[in-house]
Amino acid sequence: MISNAKIARINELAAKAKAGVITEEEKAEQQKLRQEYLK
């Protein structure tokens, strides 16, 4: 099960992506976390 901290990070990265200020490194982290969440 995914931790609350990881869910919070997913939401934080989603907000950054929506604002258009996300880095390529953060995009990769976001994809990794989303895949983990979906498992």
Rank of each mutant, 00 (worst) to 15 (best):
A5H: 09
A19C: 08
L33C: 02
Q35E: 15
M1Y: 07
A5T: 12
A5R: 08
N4V: 13
K6A: 13
R9T: 02
A14G: 05
A19N: 12
V21S: 13
A28D: 12
E24Y: 05
L33K: 03
Q30A: 15
I22K: 01
K39W: 06
E24V: 10
Q30F: 15
M1I: 14
K18D: 11
Q30S: 10
T23L: 03
A17P: 01
L38I: 10
Q30W: 15
L13C: 03
K39H: 13
K16N: 02
E26V: 00
Q31H: 10
I7Y: 03
Q31R: 13
A28L: 14
Q35S: 09
Q35P: 04
I22S: 03
A15S: 09
A8K: 12
T23P: 00
G20E: 05
G20F: 00
E36M: 04
A17H: 06
I10N: 02
K27V: 12
R34W: 15
T23N: 05
E12N: 04
I10K: 03
A14N: 12
L13S: 01
K16D: 02
Q31T: 12
Q30M: 15
E24G: 05
Y37W: 14
A19K: 07
K16E: 01
R34D: 15
R9Q: 03
E29H: 01
A28I: 13
R9L: 04
G20C: 07
A8W: 00
K27R: 13
M1P: 13
K39T: 15
V21F: 07
E36L: 05
N4P: 15
I7K: 07
Q30G: 06
L33G: 02
I2N: 08
E25R: 07
T23Q: 02
A15M: 10
E12Q: 08
N4W: 02
A15Q: 11
V21I: 14
R34V: 15
E36P: 01
N4R: 12
N11K: 14
K32N: 08
I22Y: 02
L38N: 12
M1N: 14
K39Y: 06
A5G: 09
A19E: 11
E12R: 03
A15P: 00
M1T: 12
I22A: 05
Q31K: 12
L33H: 03
V21A: 10
G20P: 00
Q31A: 14
R34L: 15
V21W: 06
A28R: 11
I10H: 05
M1H: 13
E26C: 03
N11Q: 14
V21R: 07
R34F: 15
E36H: 05
K18P: 01
G20V: 02
A14R: 11
I10Q: 04
N11W: 09
L33A: 04
L38R: 05
K16G: 00
S3N: 09
K32H: 08
Q35C: 15
L33N: 03
N4M: 14
I2W: 03
E36Q: 05
Q30N: 06
N4A: 14
A28S: 08
L38W: 09
I2Q: 09
A5C: 08
I22G: 01
K27P: 01
L33Q: 02
K32G: 06
A14H: 08
I10R: 04
A15K: 12
E29G: 00
I2Y: 02
A17F: 04
R34Y: 15
K16H: 04
A19D: 07
E26H: 00
K39P: 14
S3H: 08
I22C: 02
A5D: 13
N11T: 08
A28F: 09
Q35A: 09
M1E: 13
N11A: 13
A14Q: 12
K27T: 07
A14P: 00
E36I: 03
A17Q: 12
N4G: 13
E25Y: 06
E36N: 04
K32P: 00
A28V: 12
K18Y: 04
R9D: 02
A19I: 07
A5Q: 11
A15H: 07
K6P: 06
E26Y: 00
R34K: 14
Q31G: 07
Y37T: 09
E26T: 00
K32W: 09
E24R: 08
I7W: 04
S3T: 12
K6Q: 12
V21K: 13
G20Q: 05
E24T: 08
E26I: 00
R34P: 02
E29P: 00
E26F: 00
A15G: 07
K32R: 14
I7Q: 08
K27M: 13
K27H: 06
E25K: 07
L13M: 00
E36D: 13
S3R: 06
K39D: 15
V21G: 06
G20Y: 00
E25L: 10
L13Y: 00
A8D: 12
A17D: 07
A17M: 06
A5Y: 01
S3A: 10
I7C: 14
M1L: 12
S3M: 06
L38E: 15
A8Q: 12
I22F: 03
R34S: 13
Q31L: 07
L38T: 09
K32V: 08
K18S: 09
Q30H: 15
Q31Y: 05
I7E: 06
A17G: 05
K18E: 12
K16I: 04
A15D: 09
L38C: 13
R34M: 15
I10L: 15
S3I: 10
L38D: 15
E12L: 06
I7M: 09
I2V: 09
A15R: 11
R34H: 15
E12C: 06
K39A: 15
K39Q: 13
R9I: 03
